[in-house]
Simulated assay, not measured.
Amino acid sequence: MKFNPERMAFGRHETFAVRYGWLSKGFQAMDENSKVFESDEATVRLGVGKNMVSAIKYWLRACRMIDPVENIPTDLGTAILSEEGFDPYLEDEATIWLLHWLLATNAELATSWYWFFNRFHKPEFTGQELSTALIDFVNDQVTNKKKPSVSTLKNDATLLPRMYTQSRGNTRTPFEEALDSPFALLKLMSQSSGGRSYQTRPSSRPDVPLGVLGFAVCEMFEMKQTSVIPVEDLMYSKDNYPAIGSVFRLTENDLVTKLERLVEFIPGVFDIRDTAGQHQIYLSGTIDAIAFVTKHYENSRQGIAA
């Protein structure tokens, strides 16, 4: 969704990164009892402490699996995480890519994640540089209301690389904390051999499924309320909109190649044309974004490559 400096959120994760099992466990508990997160039984039902209950609820909202206003499962959440859903236990890597897109474009509830993947462009950085850049961004954007504390922003800046880099098996780290977040599987960020800096660079990413890409393109058309988007605007974040190339850390060539393949994935929806030397993608038909996700999982079950 489009970034609005009047609607931001930081530090609601209780310093806990997403863990395998949390989203499906929390979603299915809520499916059974819509008030589970407010009830005394939440800790028993989810098998975690109170702070972790809050974190699970937050990540479900930040990943757009439950509606933050009505506090009910979203259609997409039900399609994926319900017991009869496409992938309730995150066994298909496509689900992680989709959740990443949903999180990194949620500028309202996961502002630091939106900022990092759409507005922060240093290919190599230290944890201190990341914290400083986030604090500078917030100081620049938040002018009409109370700013979040520096410690809250530092917690976000610490959690980001922890979620997206694979652990190095520090023996002093408790077992639960050493378990990689599912987002580490995407390899969008890596840690230097000395552990003092991080890298995140555009790359050719064959693992990004066309169904997830199609969902993202549909959302971009919906956000912009248009029927034509320059490919450059899908590559780089402009005018406070997220960008597919930035969120998935794609090279320009890889994005164009994927978009050309996407045209054939569900024919009659998208079209790519050159207009005055500019690559543009057109919305030729009407379709629900979830249809692209559905097509991926149906193909996957039939053994058809993405």
Rank of each mutant, 00 (worst) to 15 (best):
K2F: 06
R7A: 06
R7L: 06
G11D: 15
A17Y: 03
V18K: 05
R19E: 07
R19Q: 13
Y20E: 14
G21S: 10
W22Y: 10
W22N: 03
K25S: 11
F27N: 01
D31S: 08
A42V: 06
V44Q: 12
V44N: 05
V44Y: 10
V44T: 08
R45V: 15
V48Q: 08
S54G: 11
W59C: 02
R61I: 07
R64F: 02
P68Q: 05
E70M: 10
N71W: 01
T74D: 01
G85I: 08
F86T: 01
F86A: 12
D87W: 02
P88T: 05
Y89I: 05
E93T: 04
T95H: 00
T95Y: 01
T95E: 05
T95N: 00
W97H: 11
L99Q: 01
L103D: 08
A104P: 02
T105M: 01
N106F: 05
A107Y: 13
L109K: 14
S112Y: 07
F117D: 00
F120M: 11
H121T: 12
P123S: 14
P123F: 12
E124S: 15
F125T: 09
T132V: 13
A133Q: 01
A133T: 00
A133I: 00
I135T: 06
I135L: 05
D136W: 12
F137E: 03
Q141M: 11
V142I: 06
V142L: 12
K146N: 13
S149V: 06
V150D: 02
S151D: 10
N155Y: 15
N155C: 11
N155L: 06
D156Q: 07
D156M: 05
L159R: 15
L160N: 06
P161F: 13
M163R: 10
N170L: 06
F175V: 15
F175M: 13
E176S: 15
L179I: 08
P182N: 13
A184Q: 03
A184E: 07
L185Y: 02
L185A: 09
R196Q: 14
T200Y: 15
S204M: 14
L213G: 08
L213S: 08
V217W: 07
V217I: 09
C218F: 09
E219D: 14
E222P: 00
M223W: 15
V228A: 13
P230H: 09
P230S: 08
V231E: 02
E232Y: 10
D233Y: 09
D233L: 04
S237M: 00
K238E: 14
D239E: 13
A243S: 09
I244G: 02
R249T: 05
L255S: 10
K258D: 09
L262T: 05
V263K: 12
G268I: 02
F270E: 04
R273C: 11
D274S: 15
G277K: 07
Q280R: 15
I281A: 12
Y282I: 03
Y282M: 03
D288C: 05
D288Q: 08
A291G: 02
A291L: 04
H296W: 00
E298P: 03
E298D: 12
S300V: 04
G303E: 11
A305P: 01
A306N: 08
A306I: 12
